[in-house]
Simulated assay, not measured.
Amino acid sequence: MSTYKLVCAHCRGRMRIRTSEGTHIFLRVAYVQCTNEACGWSVRAEFEMTHEMSPSGMPNPSVRLPVASVVMRRQAMKTADDQPDLLDQMEMECAK
């Protein structure tokens, strides 16, 4: 299950990936739709792998991405204030 949160720029509702296709080993094109029926905004999005945050335990010599800087790795470790972490999500589900 994906924990990546896509938010509609118009109504701030949740968005879902309807379909996607790989165009390159590091690039995926996705077609995304707002789940709020009153809004219904849909977009084309691109998800690109740009930097290696940590090395693979099973490296493929043909896979070459630049290694992320220390600043970029530290930024990736921060959590967004508006997105609960996994334990918070589990607690909210149990409370229902």
Rank of each mutant, 00 (worst) to 15 (best):
V7L: 13
A9R: 04
A9Q: 13
G13R: 10
R14I: 06
R16I: 01
R16Q: 05
S20E: 11
E21S: 12
H24D: 12
H24Y: 06
F26T: 03
F26H: 01
A30D: 05
Y31R: 12
E37S: 12
E37R: 14
A38S: 11
A38N: 03
A38W: 11
G40E: 02
S42P: 00
E46A: 08
E46Y: 10
E46P: 00
E48C: 01
E52P: 10
S54N: 07
P55N: 01
S56L: 07
S56E: 02
M58L: 13
P59H: 10
P59Y: 08
N60P: 08
P61D: 02
S62K: 07
V63Q: 03
V63R: 15
P66D: 07
A68L: 13
V70I: 04
V71H: 04
V71N: 08
V71F: 13
M72S: 08
R74C: 03
R74N: 15
R74A: 08
Q75K: 05
M77N: 14
K78T: 13
T79A: 03
D82V: 10
D85K: 00
L87Y: 06
D88W: 01
E91M: 15
E91P: 01
E91G: 12
E91W: 05
M92P: 02
M92N: 14
C94D: 10
C94F: 09
A95G: 07
